Amino acid sequence: MKNRCPQNHPCPSIRVCPVGAIGQIGFDAPTIDQEKCIHCKKCVKYCPMGAIQVKE
């Protein structure tokens, strides 16, 4: 949900992703590589604005 991401800081969820599925260029909203994502939801817990959601 890009509209919830302030996009002015390094995304803290990137550091907790165990498979490296989250990327960020500059301070743009992070992107999630669905092919790599294992749906562990660690990124959801660390997103301070609740912008990352995992659909089952």
Results as ranks from 00 to 15, higher is better:
M1N: 15
M1G: 14
K2E: 12
K2W: 06
R4H: 09
C5E: 01
C5V: 04
N8W: 00
N8V: 05
N8G: 01
H9P: 11
P10A: 01
C11L: 08
P12A: 05
I14Y: 02
R15I: 08
R15W: 15
R15G: 13
V16E: 10
V16F: 13
C17Q: 06
C17G: 08
P18V: 13
P18M: 09
P18K: 09
V19A: 07
V19F: 10
V19I: 14
G20F: 10
I22F: 06
I22Y: 08
I22K: 03
I22P: 00
G23M: 04
Q24A: 10
I25N: 07
F27I: 06
F27V: 09
D28T: 12
D28M: 12
P30R: 01
P30Y: 04
I32R: 00
I32T: 02
D33M: 01
E35L: 08
K36A: 11
K36I: 03
K36E: 01
K36T: 05
C37E: 03
H39F: 11
H39K: 14
C40A: 06
C40N: 10
K41D: 07
C43N: 06
C43T: 02
V44A: 01
C47R: 04
P48Q: 06
P48R: 11
P48H: 09
M49D: 15
M49C: 11
G50R: 01
A51E: 08
I52L: 08
Q53I: 10
K55W: 12
K55D: 07
K55M: 10
